[in-house]
Amino acid sequence: MTKVLTDARSIRIKGRSFLAVVLSPDLPLDQWLVQLDDLAARSAGFFLGRPVVLDVSDLAIDRAQLKALIEDLAQRNVRIMGIEGARPSMMEPGMPPLMKGGRPAADFEVEEKEPQPVSETRNSAPDKPVVQEQRQVTQSIVISEPIRSGQSVIFPEGDVTIIGSVASGAEIIAGGSVHIYGALRGRVMAGSVGNASARIFCRKLEAELIAIDGVYKMAEDMDPALLGKAVQLWLEGDVIMAETLF
């Protein structure tokens, strides 16, 4: 019985789409390759780890020329995953497969100068629908109990809201802003991953230490007039600003 069940399991085949870079060479090929070298020099690693398709549909070349072109690209570390628009007579075994049914997407913008992490470059592709899908959602967490002495809340992804007090000896480290609906007696570090626009809000300021984007202020550096008040704190340049709320 068990054997039958095992055998009945089918091979799972899934569809998946990747956004590929399409290279469409122009004649004369020598000159085009010089331009490609120029681009590669300005944007090192642009083709690294990226699926590249060679489009030869408008190119009057024969099998030998195509083979030479693929080799030239290989020397430049551009590996072709498929060829589009080639006549069957141009193909030979060992060449990347012939591809059909490609749908146009927006042009890629080549980043200048330093090599960029691949994913970031891809995010900057001005393909409207894709960019909208990839827009970062601001994350936040809400904690509805007091943060006790010795406890840490570490949330580099975004904002932290505490409904309750933050005790002396407790700490909050947030990538974004920190909202405390209670007394702040412990330490708070907002914008911990380099976010200078992060702010700190609290009902009652009695903090041991506050920091925004690495700029910090100890309890003794704080204006005594703010102590015990509802306060918001933000960064202007390298200075932590504060004002009372309500």
């Binding site: 006790r148 002495s149 010795g150 002396s168 000896g169």
Partner: peptide, 12 residues
């Protein structure tokens, strides 16, 4: 009071 606060955190 601060030590008690710490203990309450551990209790939770």
């Amino acid at each position: 009071v601060r030590d008690s606060d710490r203990i309450i955190g551990l209790l939770d």
